[in-house]
């Protein structure tokens, strides 16, 4: 079952929010690039980047929410999340994208592309601890 969406978006997606990369560098959320996530994950002991391909986007019973089905990593694990339509995901080589970019821009001032089936989003997994 998908996780229930929070009724509000986290504050760090607001345009102008200061994000600290793993090497200590500070960047605004709207200036983040794919390389920032990849390089931060490289120096992380616990986290690694996985590719999550959008397989389906369905409407939800919850108002203003959608259910997104991802195929995650090389094992293509199927994961569903229920999020607000304005929730931004970072797409490889494209940047912030949401199901309703107009609403994301309206609420967060964050420029977004339209999230579509086939888009490959950045996600995280825990590295195997040995």
């Amino acid at each position: 079952a998908p996780l229930s969406p929070s009724s509000t978006l986290p504050p760090y997606f607001m345009k102008g929010s200061i994000i600290q990369l793993a090497d200590g560098e500070l960047k605004r959320v709207e200036d983040l690039r794919t390389e920032d996530f990849l390089q931060s994950a490289e120096v992380s002991r616990e986290l690694k980047i996985d590719s999550s391909t959008v397989e389906r986007i369905d409407s939800s019973k919850t108002p203003d929410a959608v259910i997104i089905q991802f195929s995650v990593g090389e094992h293509k694990a199927q994961v569903c999340v229920e999020v607000l339509v304005e929730y931004p995901f970072f797409v490889f080589g494209q940047g912030w994208s949401s199901c309703c970019p107009d609403r994301t821009t309206q609420l967060l001032a964050l420029s977004c592309a339209k999230l579509s089936v086939g888009d490959v989003c950045i996600s995280l997994t825990l590295k195997s601890l040995r």
Binding site: P10, P11, Y12, F13, S17, I18, I19, Q20, L21, A22, L26, V29, L32, D36, F37, S40, S44, L47, I49, D50, S52, F70, V72, G73, H75, A77, V79, V81, F89, F90, C121, I122, S123, L124, T125, L126, S128
Partner: peptide
Amino acid sequence: NVEPRSVPVFPWHSLVPFLAPTQSD
């Protein structure tokens, strides 16, 4: 004198969803 306001700084990984279970291999 202007009091410096503290600006919240968020870690990079808070922006990325955890979507996959831990792989055991």
